[in-house]
Amino acid sequence: MVNKRKTTLVVALIAAAAVIILAWRPTVLIYGLQAAGLYASIAVPMGLILGIVHIVNLAHGEFLMVAAYATYLLCKSLGIDPYLALLPVTAVTAGLGFVVYKLTIRQTLKAPELNQLILTFGLGISMTQIANLLFTSQTRKLSFDYVSASIDIGELSFGVYNFVFLGAALLMVVGLRWYLTRTTAGKAAVAVGQNPRGAAIVGIDVDRTYGFVFAMATALVGMMGAMLITRSAVFPTVGSPYTMKSFCLVAMAGIGNIPGILGASILLGVSENLLKAFRGLRGWADIVFFVLIITVILGRSIRGKKA
């Protein structure tokens, strides 16, 4: 009962904040939502891995970077659009994810959690540095006309292309929800996530499920890497910031809560753009993530102690 009242209060507060922002600077809300789409669509695959395989993949952003480079090379050599390259790139990163899982992560599943953390850290560094070795640290950019599409409403003019990422995020959340609750393989994956030993006892192949989920998550990241190239330049460390941001969002939403990631992304995207709206505070926008991540993690640990 109390909980319900609390939820209503929170929803009312959020709605009020949204209305105020909309009246004052509508672009903050629009660009905030667009940024939220990008953050959420990259964070959801990490949430999937964390929720089912229970691995913090610190090489998450690096898979994004590999996909972006693959898309860049494909588009450059064949002259095609990134959205055409999306399918082959997704297949490639899924394969890469599967191989990486089989060769490395699988070996440390039984080891202490710290080993897994250090392992994925090392994987991330290796991938960034291999990109450095192959492509140097030079930034590369492809430009497309449709990216600059904009809409005018009254006096307001804003870019609409980036809403594509919000669409992708929504699609991902809905698709995963359907997969995890309606299909047999998805239900099995949830069972493995909840209790690997119990799942093994009732006859689910845990190892195969882990491998499949890992590959699926990297495929989704690969898809986002292909889409990322339409709006961002490519360089070896392009993915690194997203690892931290994704973990932050997953931790905020709570492990295993995939729709919650979308909500957390909207909170972050909007507050980041709110800071950017003030000229003097623009440089501080990056800090929002880190302050939020620490607040959330500490808040959770303190609440956990009380309970």
Partner: peptide
């Protein structure tokens, strides 16, 4: 000059996997 740090990443992986 570019990417010599790959050695460090690879060493981390090898050590974790084969000689903890």
């Amino acid at each position: 000059p570019y990417g010599h740090l790959v050695v460090y990443g690879v060493i981390i992986i090898i050590v974790i996997l084969f000689m903890p």
